[in-house]
């Protein structure tokens, strides 16, 4: 059975259509990455799935239940890491994890949860005194302490330095190994590439791609950039047939082609191209 089934989801804020006719299926145990620019509707979709926001239309099922009518036993199977939180300030890391563990029937061990997110040294530190990245890891600890079947991560690594991000990715890999279904909202292409089995690109409330990270990269018709100098001017041609193009180019030049470069489009470029195309 799919962990998440969405058909024709629509949500408006006044006249503004935040999410329009959105479909998505997430298999149990899968990690899906939801990508898109700011204001694209990612958080609206995710918060409807989490049972926070209402919807104006469409059918939604999360772990077999309509999230518009959440129940306690359904909440016990969910882990939620919100985009921003500034609560818990005067509690220590350990107190916060210990407290939230009480609300679940089969919580993870408190110390090993703290260890999982790498905060063992900070266990007795008050939340106000944590750095931004440590604070985020505490949010993740609170999201996983109830041993969720389904974990929502809304922009979990915003503000992380590269090293912290890699440590965090390792943590998510471990959760994937445990069979947790993960919905990851992110700005970072390389994050989706590293973690997601399946990526969805959202712009202006619409799904514009639903594929694998590799599929997203190869979606672009003009996959490869060929650059060279001609009459002291940098030229660039995007082409799906770089070999053919370079052969033609070589015929125009006697000898070396000045400054020749053949560059494969990165995932990021493919993504930006997709977003720009759908925003026009």
């Amino acid at each position: 059975m799919a962990a998440i089934e969405i058909k024709g989801l629509t949500r408006r804020y006044g006249d503004f259509v935040a999410v329009s006719n959105f479909d998505l299926t997430v298999a149990a145990g899968e990690c899906v990455g939801i990508l898109g620019p700011n204001g694209a509707g990612k958080t609206t979709v995710v918060e409807i799935l989490e049972g926070y926001r209402h919807r104006d239309g469409g059918d939604v099922s999360v772990l077999g239940l309509d999230p518009a009518h959440p129940t306690r036993s359904w909440r016990q199977k969910l882990g939620i890491v919100l985009q921003s939180a500034s609560d818990l300030n005067e509690l220590t890391v350990r107190e916060a994890v210990e407290h939230f563990a009480r609300y679940y029937p089969k919580p993870r061990d408190v110390d090993s949860t703290i260890e999982l997110v790498g905060l063992t040294d900070k266990a007795t530190t008050r939340t106000t005194n944590l750095s931004g990245g440590q604070r985020r890891r505490l949010d993740v600890a609170l999201g996983v302490v109830g041993t969720p079947e389904l974990l929502f991560l809304d922009e979990p690594t915003t503000g992380f330095d590269p090293e912290a991000r890699h440590i965090f990715w390792g943590l998510i890999e471990r959760l994937k190994h445990e069979g947790v279904t993960i919905v990851l909202t992110t700005h970072y292409l390389e994050e989706a590439d590293a973690l997601a089995d399946h990526v969805v690109v959202v712009t202006r409330g619409r799904k514009v791609a639903d594929t694998t990270p590799a599929g997203l990269g190869s979606r672009s018709q003009n996959l490869v950039s060929v650059r060279w100098y001609e009459h002291d001017e940098l030229k660039e041609q995007r082409t799906a047939e770089p070999t053919k193009f370079v052969r033609e180019l070589a015929a125009r030049f006697t000898g070396e082609i000045p400054g020749l470069e053949v560059v494969r489009t990165t995932l990021e470029e493919a993504y930006l191209e997709l977003v720009n195309a759908s925003e026009q």
Binding site: E50, G51, R72, S73, R75, I80, L82, A85, D87, L142
Partner: peptide, 17 residues
């Protein structure tokens, strides 16, 4: 204050009665 700083959002998203 707890409604604006996310305390209530976290609690209602948990299975706390």
């Amino acid at each position: 204050e707890e409604r604006s700083n996310g305390t209530l959002k976290r609690l209602v998203g948990s299975p706390m009665p």
